[in-house]
Write a protein that binds this DNA or RNA. Sequence first.
DNA 1: GTCTATAACGAGATAGAC
DNA 2: GTCTATCTCGTTATAGAC
Lengths: 201, 201
Amino acid sequence: MPRQDQQNKQIRDERRAQILQAALRVFARRGMVAAKISDIAKEAGLSHGLVYHYFKSKEEIFMTLVQKALDSSLNVIHYAHERVGTHLEKLRWMTEQIIKSIDNGDEILLFLIMIQASTSDIVSEEVKEMLTGEHAVSPVMATIPLIVEGQKVGEIKQGDPVQLAVTYYAFIQGLAINRIQWEGCPMPEANLIMNIFKKTP
Amino acid sequence: MPRQDQQNKQIRDERRAQILQAALRVFARRGMVAAKISDIAKEAGLSHGLVYHYFKSKEEIFMTLVQKALDSSLNVIHYAHERVGTHLEKLRWMTEQIIKSIDNGDEILLFLIMIQASTSDIVSEEVKEMLTGEHAVSPVMATIPLIVEGQKVGEIKQGDPVQLAVTYYAFIQGLAINRIQWEGCPMPEANLIMNIFKKTP
DNA sequence: GTCTATAACGAGATAGAC
DNA sequence: GTCTATCTCGTTATAGAC
């Protein structure tokens, strides 16, 4: 690969990342429809037209971000599975990671993107497919094995594991929403959330 | 008041309610910006132009709904205060009511409106004022006295009451989101949520 | 009170210059 | 690779007929 091409590739990768970063901020706070390409361009510090050089459409940018958000949430579950310790400890570690990501920086915006994508009617069929399609894997589904295993060995209280997982993610998403509504609101300890899984005497 | 005028007033009240009901459905699922006046008109079964006969703008419709959502959430807290029983029982009753309203009908859509209004940048200053203005009362704030009283008499675990309230509403909002994402998802018992307030031995 | 027709405007997407 | 100018279309909001 000629030297010039490598430099070009680097520029292209940079610009793409730059646009995605800007789009994340704009989409998360304004929503897919209200977000204007010119908003994204301005946030990224480049021209309106250039955005279309790197992405086919606004929809494509949004889809890319939804994919990123989904990957990110599945990743932390994956790492939790691989940790050493009890199932409850794995879940606690995962919860701590999630709270951290809600608590600082732009990572929380990925939650908002996910919530928008999964509660809104306006998303394209492709996005819906990613979230609820035939071979789509949702965070809830990916977490269930961990819960079931924990129940088998008696670390986690009995009951429908699906309901436990749903409740857990309801909590997580609610925290992200709350954090946006009230920046600097006090975040609960991971332990408080873990009470969901513990036996009540 | 002449007979004719009374009939007219009734028609006007009906139409207004009809439009608001339709707007609630459309706004909740598409968002304030993506929702088209023609969508609302179609859902309400009347013409595009008539909507503007009853409301000055799309913004005004949205604002009216935000106010309704806010009133509704404060009302249930108010009733909880007035009930007989321990503070924990009041909170449990309130939680049951909220879960019921999330679980069926269009009431859940009011939660979505509130969440949209409070997480989005696109809402007008007037709406922001309603939610976070000088003499605005948020559900979190309205619930804190109940928690503080419960802590005084030892029914509720110690700790920052603001944090407890935030956590509680995070949970509630998360449940509403979850319910939209997955219609028919299993809803947790009110008791599960009450664990937030209970002392952990 | 209700409708249809239309004015006015803004935003997504493209073309083509540099 | 980057920008500005422009095309095009859909939507809000209004005007005026019934």
